[in-house]
């Protein structure tokens, strides 16, 4: 295979990595905020968080991508493809991050929260000093799964015109009519990314483990 191909796939990989990083960072921030809403003592916030999660979790990502890429310009919001797709992915995966955080928080016994509240800690202090540190460990692997899903999900960006790894593989295939080789190569790259993230998640999990 010509070196131009590796060059092209390399550029695709760079986009994939950038998109994964941006979308995951966005999903983490938004997902944690949503989770805070969902466990907050304020009913309207709880309802809003729950509605968001229900809506985004129940629409296929590809449908969301098409809606955002071709729908937003219809209401006058034309942003670059990469930004639109990264934003959509962040919004979509935030719903999953929210549920991971929420179920992680649920693993902390109720008595821990009651003790913190009884000592006069506010809701946010209680989250920060008591709940989150004790729930981190149970969140690491599920968050790793979200990361893997998100990484592999970025390949859907090719369907709406972002020339990331899969998109470049499609271009290469059109050019050299050798689909197996380019897709085998991209498969290897995806597997390498996801395996690595699995290992890293394991490391982090041990690091945040509670000493008992």
């Amino acid at each position: 295979m010509p070196t131009g191909v590796l060059d092209q796939l390399g550029r695709g990989l760079l986009l994939t990595v950038e998109m994964t990083a941006l979308a995951f960072a966005g999903a983490l921030v938004l997902g944690v905020l949503l989770a805070v809403c969902r466990i907050s003592p304020v009913p309207p916030l709880r309802l809003a968080g729950a509605a968001y999660v229900t809506a985004f979790r129940n629409i296929p990502l590809l449908v969301l991508l098409v809606l955002f890429v071709f729908g937003l310009p219809e209401v006058g919001l034309l942003y670059p493809l990469f930004a639109t797709v990264a934003l959509t992915m962040a919004l979509y995966w935030a719903a999953f991050v929210c549920e991971v955080v929420r179920s992680g928080v649920r693993t902390v016994p109720r008595g821990q929260i009651e003790a913190a509240r009884a000592l006069g800690l506010t809701f946010t202090q209680c989250l920060r000093h008591v709940v989150i540190p004790q729930s981190l460990r149970s969140m690491v692997q599920p968050l790793g799964n979200v990361f893997i899903g998100l990484t592999l999900g970025t390949s859907l960006a090719a369907a709406v015109g972002v020339p990331e790894l899969t998109g470049q593989a499609q271009l290469v295939t059109l050019k050299y009519d050798n689909p197996l080789t380019s897709f085998a190569l991209t498969t290897v790259v995806y597997v390498a990314i996801t395996l690595t993230s699995g290992v890293i998640a394991g490391r982090i999990e041990r690091k945040v483990a509670i000493k008992r």
Binding site: E114, A118, L119, P133
Partner: peptide, 16 residues
């Protein structure tokens, strides 16, 4: 709550 202490049946010390 900061002025009212509470001791629970199950201690509820912060495990971490």
């Amino acid at each position: 709550r900061a002025q009212v202490g509470m001791v629970f049946q199950s201690f509820n010390l912060f495990g971490h």
